[in-house]
Amino acid sequence: MGKEEVAIKEGDNMKLCITSEGKTLDAKVDPRFGRCQNFIFFDTDIGNFEACENANAQFQGGAGIQSGQLVVSKGVKAVLTGNVGPNAHQVLSAAGVSVFTGVSGTVKEAVENYKNGKYKSADAPNVGSKFGMPNK
C-alpha cells in the first residue's frame, strides 16, 4: 500500500468529511465510511461545519458508492474515517478526494490530527465489500 505525507498549509480552503457517530465535533468517529451514521463536513478555512445524516446506511447494496457520491458532490477534498471499501474508494479516487483510514477518537481530535499532518493517505481500500453491513 503506497503512502504519502500530507502537509496542509494554513489558509488552504479545504473541506474535510469526517464520518461520525453523532452530529457534533465531540462525537466519535464512525469506523465505517459507506454506512456511517453521520457525515460531518468541516471547512478548515473558516472552521465551521455541517452535520448530515447518512441515508445511504440503510441501502442493501451500493451504500459505499452513494456515500462516495455525496462526499464528491459536497466538494470535499479529504475524507477522515476508519475504513473504506473498494467501491467507495473507487468513487472517491475518481474525483481526486484523498482518503485517510484508521482514524479514531472524536471528530475534533481527527480534525486536529489531520491539520498537524498526523495521518497518511490510503491509496487503496482497507476493507472488503459489505464490511459495514449490520450483523457482521
Binding site: 447494496g61 458508492i65 452513494q66
Partner: peptide, 28 residues
Amino acid sequence: REVCAYHAIAVVPANDGKKGSVLIFPHL
C-alpha cells in the same frame, strides 16, 4: 445515478478543467 434503484452508478462532475466521469458497478 438518480434513477438507478440499485445504487450502481456514481457520477463525478467535471471540475477545474478536469473531465467528469461516470462510474458503473456492473455487479450491482
